Amino acid sequence: MMETSVIVKKVDHFLIEEFEVEPEDIVVDASLKDTLDLDSLDYVDLVVAIEATFGVKLIGDDFIGVESFQDFYDLIERKVNI
């Protein structure tokens, strides 16, 4: 089982590196889409980065209800710890 703190650290790292997000903009209850300024192509890049980083498979339905960074962390934690 991967600990939540490890997941958060890895996610934040690739968001900062790949999406050029300022670390102070990553707030657990902030809107993921608005903060990252995601369009549909960015979502594809995000999914590819998650799959490469964590070795999990994501589908579009996985993102239903994912609004905040915390929702995003929770999604990845559920997938990683199946």
Rank of each mutant, 00 (worst) to 15 (best):
A49G: 11
L32Q: 08
A49Y: 09
V44W: 06
T53K: 01
L58W: 03
F63G: 05
L58D: 00
F54N: 03
L41G: 15
D37V: 13
D37R: 15
A30I: 08
V44K: 09
K57Y: 05
V56A: 01
L32V: 13
D34Q: 07
V56D: 02
L32R: 15
I59C: 06
T53D: 04
K33E: 13
I59W: 00
L46T: 06
D62K: 01
I59H: 04
S40V: 11
A30S: 14
V44H: 10
L38K: 06
G65C: 06
G65H: 08
L46K: 01
D42V: 12
K57N: 10
A30T: 05
V47E: 04
L38F: 09
I64R: 11
D45R: 15
S40D: 15
F63R: 08
V44T: 15
F54K: 03
V47K: 07
L36D: 01
D61K: 09
V47T: 14
L58F: 02
L36M: 12
K33M: 12
Y43A: 09
L38G: 08
A49D: 13
A30F: 06
D45H: 15
A30V: 07
L36G: 08
D61N: 04
V47R: 05
L58M: 06
D61M: 07
E51D: 13
G55P: 00
L58N: 00
K33C: 13
V66T: 07
F63Y: 13
V56N: 00
F63P: 00
D62Y: 02
I64C: 05
E51M: 07
D45E: 12
K33Y: 14
I64Y: 09
A49S: 15
V28H: 06
D42N: 14
G55V: 03
S31N: 07
I59F: 09
I64F: 10
L36P: 02
L46H: 03
V56Q: 01
A30K: 04
A52W: 05
S31C: 08
D42R: 15
D61H: 09
S40I: 09
D39H: 12
A49F: 09
L46I: 12
S31H: 07
S31A: 09
V28Q: 01
D42T: 12
D61W: 03
Y43T: 12
G60F: 02
A30R: 09
